[in-house]
Write a protein that binds this DNA or RNA. Structure first.
Lengths: 346, 346
DNA sequence: GTGAAAGCGCTAACAT
DNA sequence: ATGTTAGCGCTTTCAC
């Protein structure tokens, strides 16, 4: 067995083996500079470096060039079933385009988020996809201050300070509300997500305004706030809802996890879903089809979300002309009717 | 607005601002070298670099030191619900220990896997956690040849060539088999995972040997192979099972996804689960509690899996004496009885 | 078309 | 206790 396990083969080694200069090797191996080198030498270099097992050291390249061919993605939490599909999509795409995706997790903690974004930028990522923004968010400012290409997905800050790709929350809530209204519901509650998160706020606003459009008066369309987008928060919000508005026949939860928590609590007090009360979610998390109470919900265009974010980010990185002004893309969700909704009892 | 957005602040800048040398700044900021510097200077440097917004460039450090404080983890696919919990666990732990985790995906494709591991090593990760090994796997060889610290989790190659942390498949199958046997089942089938994956093979072997222990003859304990650990493969395997062994009253699937596919097919031909036929899984994927047919399965000690792998890897990286010989850790799964199993019909 | 030399930002000798 | 120098591996002027 060879004893140079740890010895790295460098351009120098390849150059020496070929009796040429490191610069030539470098050029021969770089697609953008190959044209400066004779075909014969290119071939020689390619064969030799392959043979010697040469792989360029990305650290050195990055240090020299300032670009890393790496993009960073921040998500709150990989355990939240919404994110794996999005990460997958984005990973596939960036990879295909020659970039490496680095994940960072914020745990929905703004301080941690800032630390992590600092780390990403210190590591010289070429750009950042932020799927964890709060409405006021120092991470966004940090990226912008440092001139880092940035796109926000799904959750955004209040002003259009960078590219954003969003799901049309209003349309989603509209579809859900209409679905329930057509079933005959006239007392519909909303379990809202945190106000500090754009999707929480915009779904809440959408709900209020759409209730009005359908001539459902505010006291027949109560809103309860959940403190987080989690099962437990949904359960707790539902306790309050049941106490304060026992008359509601349907609940639009701001996401699937809240809806699950809601169902949990409803069943705990003996309600039958959907007969006693209809419940809807938002996002269409994986495996919902398999659930005991398959949730009626609204599904995200995950592929487009990923696609758009990557494209926008790359156009920023390449400084394409169309990236001169922040852009906002609004993607459409799709109603998925399952078994958690039906006509109101009686 | 300042126009030096892109300008990186370096040790040199901080040193210049303080009228001292870069090395002193470097030392003052490095925990291991601080003791070589006067307390007064340390304080000065810390304040100044904070004030100037200095962050070390990890590329440069890596290039110089040869170590990146980065560890790589390879998983087949982030969409497989087994992996997020494991990734989460490992991520938390490595982060706490000052390491950054980089993920790579193999899509269960050996060639892609090799490419990815090469990339990780080219990027100079300090070690690799491999959760995607095949029984014969060039990725393992590649790591070993390059002297990279490596631990295999959950799926391993045939020989003990590096540290491994495993779930005790035999124990898991035993618990499931015993559970079904006690319920009265005497015709139990196994839907096996691919033979090329260690967990597929070892669960199959476990099944065969345990059937024998319980004096269930081989023709009352048929084994059907699925081509992958997926829902679809489970469905297809079940078609064959139903044709060839209509008499079975219970199925032990090699993992949850296979079990789901199995259930899908059984229901497609009008069977009622668990009354007509009991089905069990393996792994206890998230949200199983919520499922229409909550799966009886065996749950993995995810925390320990993550914990052990990280510890072992770090002990290799630090070249602790206990890492001189490959170690194999066998963790115990736990039976989780839900609603997909009951006494055999009639 | 190719080589020599400098430098990205950092740290580890080797001075002093 | 601190400064000076060199070099990690690469790319890129600038020469020829």
């Amino acid at each position: 067995m060879d004893n140079d396990k740890n010895k790295r083969i460098t351009v120098k080694d390849v150059a020496a083996a070929l009796g040429i200069s490191p610069s030539t090797v470098s050029r021969a191996l770089s697609p953008e500079k190959q044209h400066l080198v004779s075909d014969r030498v290119i071939e020689l270099v390619e064969k030799k470096s392959e043979e010697m097992g040469y792989t360029a050291n990305p650290m050195a390249t990055a240090l020299k060039r300032g670009a890393t061919k790496t993009i960073g993605m921040m998500i709150p939490d990989i355990l939240n079933p919404i994110f794996p599909p999005l990460v997958h999509e984005i990973q596939q795409l960036t990879n295909k385009l020659g970039y490496t995706l680095t994940l960072a997790y914020t745990e929905n903690n703004q301080e941690l988020a800032l630390e992590e974004v600092k780390r990403l930028i210190a590591r010289n990522v070429d750009g950042i996809i932020l799927a964890s923004a709060f409405r006021k968010d120092p991470t966004v400012d940090y990226c912008l201050d440092h001139g880092k290409p940035l796109v926000q997905v799904n959750r955004v800050i209040d002003n259009l300070a960078s590219d954003q790709v969003l799901v049309d929350d209003r349309e989603g809530i509209y579809q859900l509300f209409e679905h329930l209204y057509k079933l005959g519901h006239r007392h519909i509650a909303h379990i809202a997500g945190p106000n500090e998160i754009s999707s929480g706020l915009s779904r809440r606003h959408a709900f209020i305004s759409i209730a009005d459009m359908f001539d459902v008066s505010p006291d027949h369309a109560p809103v309860i706030s959940a403190r987080a987008f989690s099962e437990l928060a949904g359960k707790d919000a539902t306790k309050i809802l049941l106490k304060e508005h026992p008359e509601v026949t349907a609940v639009i939860a701001a996401n699937d996890l809240l809806a699950l928590g809601c169902i949990e609590e409803l069943e705990a007090v003996g309600k039958i879903i959907p007969n006693d009360i209809s419940v809807t979610g938002f996002n269409d998390m994986p495996y919902l089809d398999w659930f005991r109470i398959p949730l009626t919900t609204v599904s995200l265009p995950q592929t487009q979300l990923g696609d758009q974010s990557v494209r926008m980010l790359l156009s920023q990185i390449r400084k394409d002309s169309d990236s001169a002004f922040p852009r906002k893309v609004l993607l459409q969700p799709r109603l998925v009717v399952r078994k958690s909704t039906t006509t109101p009892r009686k």
